[in-house]
Design a binder for these strands. Structure first.
Lengths: 70, 70
DNA sequence: TCCCTATGTAAAGCACGCTTTACACATATA
DNA sequence: TATATGTGTAAAGCGTGCTTTACATAGGGA
């Protein structure tokens, strides 16, 4: 599942380490999620959304909304 | 993490089996999530939210929003 | 050059999400 | 009674989310 975490993080001038600390996860976890290696758990997705003050659906994109046309 | 899935499901007259089939998971998975035995993965949370046409944050509650007063 | 910060990645290990199979119980209906 | 549907739960097994430790690379500043 795609996400905008790297853009949101760098826009705030934070390192992966700093964001991990703020969300109580390791920097490797932030790196893996940014790289799309795996999706965060739902609780971590909530923490990310709250941290960036955005709805989960605006940060993550599971690709089910933009089917064909438009 | 608490959720309103049972209420949303029964309001639509669906069995756990029927909801599971609609979301491509087993009925045991629906049962476990309704019972709060574990949280769904983020992709499944998206499918649930889309199915019920609600934002993820309105279906799930990780309890971090209602701190103290109010 | 040396050091420090930031990032990428890998491996081992543990806990959780989800599966299938299976058994139990309640309610309804023939 | 027998059969069917809906639900609760358990166990084994597999893949993933996240951890710690560790090594490598790149860029900036002393």
């Amino acid at each position: 599942m795609k996400n905008d975490i790297r853009a949101l993080r760098t826009a705030r001038g934070l390192s992966q380490e700093a964001l991990g600390t703020a969300l109580d996860v390791s920097r490797q976890t932030i790196n893996a999620i940014e790289a799309g290696r795996y999706d965060p758990s739902l609780p971590l997705a909530f923490r990310l959304a709250r941290f960036f003050a955005l709805p989960i659906e605006e940060i993550f994109d599971d690709g089910a909304g933009e089917k064909a046309g438009s």
